[in-house]
């Protein structure tokens, strides 16, 4: 087989030159499917990481009924401080909230109040720190039954929603990747089929002089592999460079967001994309070679 490697690579190159547009289309679909796959993997790794870091938050936010007077709020605060598992409770009054809001949008208190219809729209907010993260949920649930509070927010709630969301995303991502992957395989197999067709005379003569089917198949198989590999390489570059860029951007602007920077994962994903590209190429060519070489 090594004696023929020159022949095989020459033929592979020639056939790519023969239909450059179809080759390009094959490469691009492989690339698109793998770019989506790559980003989905990184995105899921990040949401999982984010969920973990939120789970470890020990705070519960509790919003006090608007009708409560400052005294009633103070009573409620000390009442909660007495509950088991509570480490501390801090209060952000509606006035403070309004002031903070005013700072962020750059207006004065009175002008905002006037804008929103004459009353301060913010509630008093109690931030409850918990001694043990395990207790967050039960504590939050018992706070929800407290008539003085109209809304309770805690990390777990957000985490649950996040996980539900990523579950959806996982399926959608899987579907999109599968659809593009199938399209890539089909395009590669059309590509190979056209090349088989345009070289049918040559193949006929090859068979006549006794070339084995394995030998005849090689250039086509390698063509499929090459198309897949080129698509996979482009995808790995786009995903790799893009992810690095996003990481840097997020870390400098949204500093509170934890970003996964796992070199092992990074290498596994890029290598995986290369292999996946080659696999698509191989499957595509095998599809179109199955039938025609039997006789």
């Amino acid at each position: 087989m090594f004696n023929s490697s020159g022949y095989i690579f020459r033929e592979t190159f020639n056939s790519m030159r023969r239909n450059p547009w179809l080759s390009l289309a094959s490469v691009i679909t492989v690339m698109v499917s793998l770019v989506i796959l790559g980003y989905s993997i990184f995105f899921l790794a990040n949401t999982a990481n984010m969920a973990k870091s939120f789970e470890s938050e020990l705070e519960i936010g509790a919003f006090v009924q608007m009708s409560y007077t400052p005294e009633e709020v103070q009573d409620l605060k000390s009442q909660i401080e007495q509950m088991p598992g509570v480490e501390s409770v801090s209060l952000v009054t509606k006035e403070q909230a309004l002031e903070d809001f005013g700072k962020t949008i750059g207006g004065t208190q009175s002008s905002i109040v006037a804008d929103v219809g004459g009353t301060n729209p913010f509630p008093d907010k109690l931030t409850v720190k918990v001694t043990d993260p395990q207790n967050v949920k039960t504590l939050a649930q018992s706070l929800e039954t407290n008539p003085g509070l109209y809304k309770v927010r805690y990390g777990q709630e957000f985490v649950d929603q996040l996980l539900k969301f990523t579950q959806w995303l996982r399926w959608i991502g899987f579907g999109v990747v599968a659809a593009f992957g199938a399209a890539a395989v089909v395009l590669i197999s059309i590509n190979v089929k056209i090349n088989v067709f345009s070289r049918r005379k040559e193949i006929q003569i090859m068979k006549l002089v006794g070339a084995s089917n394995g030998f005849i198949r090689w250039p086509f198989l390698i063509e499929g592999l090459a198309l897949g590999l080129v698509g996979g390489t482009l995808a790995a570059i786009i995903v790799g460079v893009g992810y690095n860029w996003i990481t840097v951007y997020v870390q400098s602007t949204l500093t509170f967001l934890p970003v996964v920077q796992n070199q092992v994962l990074f290498r596994q994903v890029t290598l995986g994309l290369l292999l996946a590209g080659m696999a698509m190429g191989a499957i595509g060519s095998v599809f179109s070679l199955q039938k025609f070489l039997r006789a």
């Binding site: 004696n3 020159g6 022949y7 002089v209 005849i216």
Partner: peptide, 30 residues
């Protein structure tokens, strides 16, 4: 060996390449 009325030569290969083809594709050393 098979010979045809219509020759069945490959138009984009030279005489040498057409003949050598029969050996190349069965893996004879260069």
């Amino acid at each position: 060996g098979v010979i045809f009325q219509d020759f069945k030569l490959l138009p984009n290969k030279t005489v040498f390449e057409n003949v050598a083809f029969a050996l190349e594709v069965i893996g004879v050393p260069k």
